[in-house]
């Protein structure tokens, strides 16, 4: 009798949870539903009246238009290369840094780390001009005119601006790993290189993976730096730049914008759906508050 009572309240509780969550889900999906609906329409530059919330038809011509644009493959190619190239390098360099800050004592370590922390709080908007000037003066072999307008130039800035945040996140992760492991390695005569590659790296895959996914998302949507550094090179076009191009001066074909937006969003959503179970968000929390 009592058991059945608990069960009934349990079911009622679950029903309540479902209702609340479905309501929340509906509200939070409105913009997405709206985008999907309107990507099937044809606007010829004016908005429909009344506004469409649910699709009235299934028409993929906006998608076909975007895919058939001659600049679409270029944009996809560049976005993919830039994003994965940047994240790969940035994460590796940051892991090295984070290990240095977490596990090696050296003079000035704390001050340096605080400077890293400080850079995260300062708006980085105006940095673009000095960054550009530096790139211009970097005339390395193969790039006699400097790195402006080149992929290495753009990626260099992306990587550099990512290092502080990534280091910050990973340092805390490394600090939380048990000391005993690395101490034994030190006693066995292994240097920090050995500890880093043999012990830390394998242990920190979840943290690295989590951070990479967040970094990929950030890079994928980056607009401003790309515009300034490679904006003058048609061959360096990225998806966010393409999206901005669709948003016209005098009028906008919304179905193109939405179709392109949704296509840009898809890879990131897939990434999250596939990896969401592996994300260690807990590390993120302790990351910012931990001494």
């Amino acid at each position: 009798m009592k058991k059945a009572g608990i069960k009934a309240s349990e079911i009622a509780g679950q029903a309540m949870i479902w209702m609340l969550l479905l309501a929340a889900l509906f509200v939070s999906s409105i913009p997405f539903i709206f985008m999907i609906t309107n990507s099937f329409e044809e606007f010829s530059y004016v908005l429909p009246n009344p506004p469409r919330i649910f699709p009235t038809r299934l028409d993929f011509s906006a998608y076909e238009y975007i895919i058939s644009r001659s600049d679409f493959p270029t944009a996809v190619k560049n976005s993919v290369i830039n994003t994965f190239g940047t994240v790969g390098f940035a994460v590796f360099i940051s892991m090295l840094s984070a290990y240095g800050f977490a596990r090696i004592k050296f003079k000035g370590r704390e001050v340096l780390f605080r400077i890293y922390l400080l850079t995260l709080m300062v708006p980085g908007f105006l940095n673009i001009i000095p960054q550009f000037v530096v790139l211009k003066s970097l005339a390395i072999p193969g790039f006699p005119d400097g790195l402006v307008g080149t992929r290495p130039g753009l990626m260099l800035i992306y990587i550099a601006t990512g290092v502080c945040g990534h280091t910050f996140f990973l340092r805390n992760f490394f600090r939380n790993l048990p000391d005993a492991l690395s101490e034994s390695a030190l006693i066995d005569g292994g240097g920090h290189g050995v500890i880093f590659f043999r012990i830390m790296l394998p242990l920190s895959t979840p943290a690295i993976g989590t951070m990479s996914i967040f970094a990929i998302q950030g890079m994928w949507e980056e607009y401003f730096t790309a515009k300034v550094i490679v904006g003058a090179q048609e061959s360096m076009l990225t998806i966010p730049l393409l999206l901005q191009r669709l948003n016209g001066q005098h009028a906008t074909r919304w179905e193109w914008v939405f179709a392109c937006s949704l296509m840009a969003l898809l890879p990131i959503v897939i990434l999250f759906v596939v990896f969401h179970k592996k994300l260690v968000v807990g590390g993120l929390t302790s990351g910012s508050v931990k001494e």
Partner: peptide, 26 residues
């Protein structure tokens, strides 16, 4: 100590110094 830490910290530090800290000072 610096010599030991350098291989780890330096690559990141160089990038940060050139592309983040220098622009901030500017």
């Amino acid at each position: 100590q610096w010599l030991v830490a350098a291989p780890f910290v330096l690559p990141g530090l160089v990038l940060v110094a050139v592309f983040v800290i220098y622009p901030m000072i500017f």
